[in-house]
Amino acid sequence: MLRRYSVHLSLATVGGLIVYLAHQEYISLYIMSVLMFMGVNIIMSTSLNLVNGYMGEFSCGHGGFMCVGAYVSSLLGVWLFAGDKVFGAPLLNPKYTLYAFPLLILVGGIAAALAGLLVAIPSYKTRGDYLAIITLASNYIIISVIENIGAIGGSRGFMGMKQLINAMGKSVDLPWMPIWVFLFTVFCIWLMRRYISSTFGKGVIAICQDEVAAEIMSVNTNKIKTITFMVSSGMAGIAGGLFAYILGYVNPGSFNILKSTEVLVMVYLGGMGSLSGSVLSAILFTILLELLRPLQIVKWIVIPLLLIILMQFRPEGIMGNRELGDIFPKLKKFYRFK
């Protein structure tokens, strides 16, 4: 009984605690924002792990899909609920923002999932290094398209999302952003876990290990690839939407190849094909980035150096391709996560 609900209980406790502390302002806004970026990074690394770890492809353009999600949910949100010089007066009454917010983020995710087709369709015929180049190209395409649409700010970026956050706070006085980030992070991990542990989702791992055998043993490899790329990029879109609303400002520059590399580092740090590894490494990486902040641009020498050391001494990452329960089998007595 306790084993069955222990995950739910501990998640509720952690979530409740964060919200309570934020609401009572026991933790500073700075720490709060670090915690929220942690959530965004967890979604980014687990979703990229789906493609790079479980499916064995090499996607290095994950930032592009994040960008699509960020822009679509921001533009839609501002168009519907906030006044803006581009869109004019809000279409709907701002007091509905609270109810529509998860939908805005999801629409961003769906748009990013559709953008994922940009990679999914070439993947039918290409794989390995060549597909990696395609993912890189798609990242550039997305960034360049947005940089060149002047109406939404081009490379200067787009803002106005803070009005939605304020409107939500006015409806019900709670720190809404931490709540949404927490809920979406849990939702994404939960969805991926269910997908990958079903017989249907095991087709993804079969493709990774032997694509020819998968196709001959009746796995519709094209369909599985499409779904996996779309789920992965859709989640990156959700992370992007949350990122945009946390900052209250987006510009295409923050989703360039550097962002994609950051996510790659998290995936390899955590271990390929390990969801718990990705969660763990996203948390560690976010803390590390903050600790190294005083170094400013020098941190981009330190972090890649860490990656080189990691590849030399522990190429399988923190967790290898095992989950937390495989490393500490005793833990399984206390929880069941499905």
Binding site: D210, I216, M217, S218
Partner: peptide, 19 residues
């Protein structure tokens, strides 16, 4: 032999039921 080597024997049979 083309088995999925990093997947359990039982899962090897299960994945073949995709059709």
């Amino acid at each position: 032999i083309r088995l999925w080597n990093e997947m359990t024997v039982l899962d090897n049979i299960r994945v073949a039921q995709h059709y």
